[in-house]
Amino acid sequence: MISGGAIPFTEKNHESSKKGYLYTLNQTLNILEDTEYELKEIRGRNPKNSISSNVAEYATAFLNTQGGRILYGVTDDSTVKGFKASSQQIDEIQRVVFDSLRTIEPTLSADHYQLEFHQIYNNESEPIEDLRVLEVVVPPSRDKKAVYFNKGKELHIRVRGVKHHLKGTEIVSFIQNKSTE
């Protein structure tokens, strides 16, 4: 998962100690938006809609480049904010995320992606009830020449930490470059 920027764990830390780090509310992670990470703050009271509205676009961009991770509940300046989600809401979010990822063509099986809901802690390393960060891991495509489209028509790529929606001759150029790799 994340290699740096989180608070070091201790034996008293619960589930996150197994992973080697904690997400602490209002702490800054030692990561930036780049070719591997996309940071998305969740605003409003409906994280399910916020996440499902763009997860396929970002996953498509990562599939068309080198893979990556989307962290929902972390601001663009790498501050952990999280979002409220009960166990039932986590189940609903997982369902809509996988439904959204199925709109990517060519379709990959759901087990290609990894979803991890991380608990958020306060400064005393105590869990904050129902406050989470969602990490969506998009591994690189096994087929290096494949070109992935969101909804069968939208081509997204990732360049220097920014998602780009390609159009017209940009699409042709991208496909030609992929086919010669």
Rank of each mutant, 00 (worst) to 15 (best):
N123T: 15
Q114W: 05
A61Q: 04
E57Y: 13
Y72W: 03
S125R: 00
G73P: 02
R69F: 11
I128D: 08
Y72R: 02
I90R: 13
F62D: 03
D77S: 05
Y113S: 05
V74I: 04
F98V: 11
S125G: 05
R132M: 06
D76F: 03
K81Y: 01
V97P: 06
K81E: 01
E105G: 01
I120M: 02
P140F: 10
A61N: 04
V137C: 09
Q114H: 11
T103R: 15
A110Y: 08
F83E: 00
S100K: 13
D130E: 12
V97H: 00
G73L: 01
R69E: 09
R69P: 01
V80L: 00
E126G: 10
T60S: 15
S141K: 09
R69G: 02
L71W: 02
F62Y: 12
Q89A: 11
E126S: 09
Q66D: 11
N122L: 04
G82E: 00
A61I: 09
F98E: 11
T103S: 15
D99P: 05
R95Q: 13
V133T: 02
Q66V: 12
F117K: 01
L63H: 07
V138I: 15
E124Y: 04
V80A: 00
V138G: 04
L115H: 10
D91C: 05
E135T: 11
S100L: 11
I70S: 04
S87V: 08
S86A: 10
G67W: 13
R132W: 07
Y113C: 13
D111Y: 14
K81R: 03
S78D: 00
Y121W: 05
R95T: 15
Y72M: 07
D91R: 06
N54V: 13
T103F: 14
V133C: 04
V136T: 06
T103P: 10
D76H: 08
V74S: 01
E57D: 12
S86D: 11
L134Y: 09
G67C: 10
V55E: 07
Q94R: 09
E57I: 13
R95F: 10
D77T: 06
Y58M: 13
T65G: 07
S109A: 14
F117V: 02
A61K: 03
L115N: 11
L115G: 11
Q119R: 06
Q114A: 14
R132Y: 12
A61V: 03
K81G: 04
G67M: 13
V74G: 02
P127V: 05
G73I: 06
S87Q: 04
T60V: 15
H118K: 06
I93C: 08
V133K: 00
F62N: 04
I120N: 00
V133F: 01
Q88E: 12
I70L: 12
H118G: 04
N64L: 08
F83H: 01
